[in-house]
Design a protein around this nucleic acid. Sequence first.
DNA 1: TAGGCCATCTGGTCCT
DNA 2: AGGACCAGATGGCCTA
Length: 217
Amino acid sequence: IPGRRSGVCGPRAVPGFRCKEQGEGSLQELMPRMVWVTGAGGPSSNAGGLQGPYRSSKPPRELSVEEQQELRRKINSRERKRMQDLNVAMDALREVMVPYSSPTGVSGISTLVLARNNILLLGSSLQEMRRLLGEVSIGMGVSGTVPRLLLTGGWPFLTGPGQLLFSPPEQQMGAEPLAWGSGSMSESPVCQCGVSKLLQHLLHFVSCQFPHILIHF
DNA sequence: TAGGCCATCTGGTCCT
DNA sequence: AGGACCAGATGGCCTA
């Protein structure tokens, strides 16, 4: 991903920048000598103190400088890991968004916006598909159950984006699949009854909406 | 050079 | 008590 860095201490780090370990070396300057590790009444807690289960009855435990540093290191490490996990998840999201993103990659915000738009698009596509399948079911005399057509198996067989076979691929014996949008459908051996036309419409819709997805019937 | 993006540190809050 | 989550701050890199 352009702009993505593996960390400021990576190849593009500049001398003098506060790297992880370097930064932790300055803890003594940044932190008070002793800290309050329970929530209530410590120097860094809010003025009113904490209520309920977060109010500690025990006196705060004192930490040595070494303990403070070790604690800070652990907390920083956890936070680093958390953010890295977030980036891994974001990268995974980017991967599935590849067909919709620009070749140069997208930022985290753009990825989320793209994902949201895609979810909305898929939702409306699903609705349209259901509507078309409903029409097909009615045309075939199926009692209103959309999934039935999908579960019947047999033809047609989509072997690739925009391709339709009328027998299983293994029985094609080198036959060329019909291509959508090329005019060949009008010359296809399939009858041109209403059901067929609806099916053609449906499959054309599916192959247009999901050109990168192989659809199995 | 300004603005966007990113990694990291940090303190506070809440949960288990 | 320890961990997760969050938001603010900081500073580096990149691009228009």
